[in-house]
Design a protein around this nucleic acid. Structure first.
Lengths: 107, 107
DNA sequence: TTGATATATGAACAACTGTTCATATATTCA
DNA sequence: TGAATATATGAACAGTTGTTCATATATCAA
C-alpha cells in the first residue's frame, strides 16, 4: 500500500469534485428519485436553464448521468449505482455532525 | 421527499468539496492506514509544509481529522468512520470506469 | 534564556469554477 | 418551409481555491 498513486489522487479528487457543488447535488438528488427531462428540472429546481445545461454536461462527461432524447425533450437519469450510495453517505455524515452539534449546544 | 432542501444541498456540496482536492485525498488516504505527524506526512507525501498545514486545517475545521500534540509533533488521524467508506466508494467507481474504458478500447 | 525543530497562519497571487447573456442547434407541427 | 419549443454551447466575468513565501507560535534541550 504505502503512498497513494499520484494519478489516483487526482482522479479521486476530480471524482469528488463533481459532487462538490450545490447545483449538481440538487440535480442528482432529484434524479435519484426519478428520471426527468431538462425543462422539468428547470421548473422543479428553480435553476437557470443555461446553468442547468452546463452542469448536466459536466455530469454527462463524467458518466454520472445518462440521457436519451424523447421528441423535443432530453431525459436524464443516473448512470451509476454508486451515486446514490455516495449521496446517502454524505447525508449521513452531515446529519451525525448536526446531531452532535446540537448536543454540544445543551452543555 | 420531492425537492431537496436548499441548505442540505449546500452542506452536501461543501462536504464533498473537501474530498475534491488531490492534496487532501493524499493526506486522507495516508491517514486511513495509520495516524501520522505533520513532518512524516511532509516527508511521505512530498508536499510543501505550509500547503500541508493549510490543508490539515481545512480537514480539522470540517471534523474530518482529529489531532493531538506529542512533544514537538502534532499527530493527525481520521475522525470519522465515513471517510474510509467514502474513499473506497470513490476508488471503486474509478476502477469500474477504467475497467470499462479499457474494455471499450478493445472494440 | 537561547537555539533548534515542528507546526500554524496571513497575505498575495495565479488558476479554476459556476453563472449569466446571447446565440446556436435540434425537433415538432402547421 | 417557417414558427415555436427544448436544449446546448461559447464568451465574459466575478468569486473561490490552493499554493507559496514570509513569519509567528510552540515545545524541547542545553
Amino acid at each position: 500500500m504505502a503512498v497513494i498513486n499520484e494519478d489516483l489522487a487526482y482522479d479521486l479528487g476530480d471524482f469528488f469534485k463533481i459532487f462538490g457543488d450545490p447545483t449538481r447535488i440538487k440535480i442528482l438528488y432529484t434524479l435519484l428519485q426519478r428520471e426527468m427531462c431538462v425543462s422539468d428540472l428547470v421548473a422543479e429546481l428553480n435553476i437557470n436553464q443555461s446553468a442547468l445545461s452546463h452542469q448536466l454536461r459536466i455530469l454527462r462527461q463524467n458518466d454520472i448521468v445518462k440521457f436519451r432524447r424523447d421528441g423535443k425533450s432530453v431525459i436524464y437519469s443516473l448512470d451509476d449505482e454508486h451515486v446514490g450510495i455516495l449521496l446517502r453517505n454524505g447525508i449521513e455524515h452531515i446529519s451525525h455532525k448536526n446531531a452532535y452539534d446540537s448536543e454540544e449546544e445543551h452543555k
